[in-house]
């Protein structure tokens, strides 16, 4: 398969398609970047442009005046994302793997048990009661991790990936005297790296982007996540404007909310780290992919 790449018509067409797609995906983000570096009065006067008419870093200065809290929020978010993603993948992966094994006779029933919550859920009130009064996790970093630690959808997707692992490999491990645990950790897991990595990436994004949990359960400023800080800059304006009649102070408050530029800057700060990290993660994917490809 490793023959030298020939230049064919179909290849050229594919390249063209992807280059166009790339533009469609990247340009809007560059637009956000452009707006975040545009001077505020120029935004009001000239409208939105990809390349700033009047360049300014004011938006970033605004967001970083509270530098200490932004840095701390980065730390909390990174901790939650890393720990949460690892636990999520490990626990859900083990569950999904077992559900593919013929030996587990109740696997269909358990699958159903796993799946049902996708359809039915008790709503916010009982979940809130559970977290605060039953588990006493309000205002701790654990609640940020716990809330998204399980996902029925991911179990079912991973189950499917594990299915494609040749039974013969697992059988031979068993004959060699491997325990089921070792089989999973030293044979199944390494083989499924690419699929686990792709699921893991999305679990990580979900953790990274989750601000609602923080907003509902976290009360200490020290534990606020990055997305919470940024979303609170972005979301409040609509609510405050709709209710501005309540106090004349609100008009001043709205006036002092970040400008459009600052809001765009917060977008960039929020997605930036993931985008910078992605090439490194992707290298790991590629490695996983080649390992996956040579398996027999």
């Amino acid at each position: 398969m490793r023959e030298k790449q020939k230049i064919t018509v179909s290849n050229v067409v594919i390249h063209i398609i992807f280059i166009l797609l790339m533009l469609v995906c990247i340009l809007p983000l560059l637009l956000v970047l452009g707006i975040s570096f545009t001077d505020e009065t120029s935004l009001l006067r000239d409208g939105y442009h990809l390349i700033p008419k009047v360049f300014s870093t004011g938006a970033y200065q605004y967001v970083f005046t509270g530098a200490t809290s932004v840095l701390r929020a980065y730390a909390v978010t990174i901790f939650v994302t890393v720990v949460g993603t690892l636990c999520h993948i490990l626990f859900m992966g083990m569950l999904a793997y077992c559900l593919t094994r013929e030996e587990v006779t109740a696997r269909n029933k358990i699958s159903l048990f796993v799946y049902l919550p996708v359809l039915f859920n008790g709503g916010l009130v009982p979940t809130y009661i559970l977290m605060t009064r039953f588990l006493h996790l309000k205002d701790t970093v654990w609640v940020l991790i716990l809330v998204s630690i399980a996902s029925a959808t991911n179990v079912l997707i991973m189950k499917n990936f594990f299915k494609s692992i040749p039974q013969a490999l697992i059988e031979s491990a068993r004959i060699d005297g491997c325990s089921e645990y070792r089989t999973f950790f030293s044979i199944v897991l390494p083989l499924s790296k690419p699929s686990l990595a792709s699921i893991g990436l999305f679990v990580a994004i979900a953790y990274w982007n989750d601000w609602m949990t923080c907003s509902l359960y976290i009360e200490t400023p020290k534990l606020q996540t990055l997305q919470y800080l940024l979303q609170s800059l972005m979301n409040n304006i609509g609510y405050l404007q709709a209710n501005a009649g309540a106090s004349q102070s609100m008009e001043t408050a709205i006036l002092n909310l970040p400008s459009e530029g600052a809001r765009m800057a917060t977008c960039i700060l929020a997605v930036g780290p993931i985008i910078f990290l992605y090439p490194f993660l992707q290298k790991y994917f590629e490695k996983g992919l080649t390992i996956g490809a040579v398996k027999e």
């Binding site: 919550p117 039915f120 859920n121 709503g123 559970l130 029925a152």
Partner: peptide, 10 residues
């Protein structure tokens, strides 16, 4: 824990 215990909310 996360999905079944809150079910009485239905």
């Amino acid at each position: 824990l996360l999905f079944y215990l809150p079910m009485p909310g239905i």
